[in-house]
Write a protein that binds this DNA or RNA. Structure first.
Lengths: 197, 197
DNA sequence: GATCTTTAATCGCGTCTAACGATTTATTTC
DNA sequence: GAAATAAATCGTTAGACGCGATTAAAGATC
């Protein structure tokens, strides 16, 4: 039995879904399954009833939940008492394009706040051009961006994810009738593209 | 931070020796070193002062010790509560009318068994008259029954569900032709009613 | 009632970790 | 100064862990 497993268990019990829990925990659904399975095997009992595709805590699961919560809270307590040099505090200024912000940031912010309650998060939108200078001058600490070309010399760059681009048109647009759209079809078209990404 | 590491830390703090702790934990001394090091790096502080070849808890180490002990004890508590030894065991004798048994009990029994695999379930049918005495004498632990009047003095009674009664007849029965049946229609009829409920 | 979606379980694979044994370094003891 | 003791470090290896792909089953949708 490890803390990691108990945290996973608590998350699943909270959202009552392996898949949602895996998203919240930033790992694959199969890993969540494996961890729960390991716990169930170690304790030799079922923690969840898998009823159809719904997941419900068993009586034993409910009892374990109380313990697991306490353990989880205690680790948080430890971390907040000891970690990052007596409390990380201050402010972190982050640049995020709105397209990313609306989709990904809510859960990130939530989690960051529980981990570092004393840190004030500043999220700002700004144009791509100012980005490099802003990072260099320290006006912002961190940036997320949607981009193709990544080469900044003074800045650490880590690719996090790849996103597909999709073509969207009104239903009456000529291209909407075609089963397939080629690059050549786009040359004459007016395209609306995100400005700051 | 994992439970394994905290247990190692507690052991080292108890015996104030990496080597002795490694023996007690049945692992190599180097592994103990590695775990303590991992903890120290994660929390970014020293847990022990290595004074010569003696080992002493730092102030931070003493504070962590209190937490780690609680965590360790909690895992023991979990294991002893869920371990088959102290787990609910024995037998539970339940009286269930067949009408209820056939409809509701399969899923109840299944779930009960997964939650309490060590408990033997005895389901028995018997007549209503014996019921009160059987409960009082402890021959049965629990009873489900379909009834209208609930007043037992020595027994806890909890209404679980209400069930509609429906009139059933063969297709050729005279009443089966009528769009609606009144109470008066029943006076002359032979009714088949469940005996023990 | 057939098809599409959603969701958890399972499998195979790659990687990272953690434990080990051997060795090194440092301190105490004689 | 030599021997003994104890913690740190290093290189290796087995196992754990996470991932992606696939499968199976239950709901949802048409």
């Amino acid at each position: 039995m490890e803390i990691r497993q108990l945290k996973t268990f608590v998350t699943v019990a909270d959202v009552l879904s392996f898949t949602k829990a895996s998203n919240r925990l930033n790992m694959a659904q199969s890993s969540v399954s494996a961890q729960i399975k390991a716990l169930e095997e170690e304790l030799d009992l079922k923690l969840f009833d898998r009823i159809g595709r719904r997941v419900v805590l068993t009586e034993a699961g409910r009892r374990l939940y109380a313990y697991a919560r306490r353990m989880d809270e205690m680790t948080r307590e430890i971390k907040s008492e000891f970690s990052t040099a007596q409390y990380a505090q201050g402010a972190l200024t982050v640049r995020v394009p709105e397209t990313i912000a609306s989709v990904y940031m809510p859960s990130v912010v939530e989690r960051f706040h529980t981990d570092h309650p004393k840190v004030k998060l500043e999220l700002i939108n700004c144009s791509d051009e100012q980005l490099r200078e802003e990072l260099n001058t320290g006006r912002i600490d961190l940036a997320f961006l949607l981009t193709d070309s990544i080469h900044f010399k003074e800045v650490n760059v880590v690719p996090l994810k790849t996103e597909k681009m999709v073509l969207v048109s009104g239903p009456s647009h000529p291209l909407a009738q075609q089963p397939q759209v080629e690059w050549d079809n786009l040359t004459e078209q007016t395209l609306l593209l995100p400005k700051t990404d």
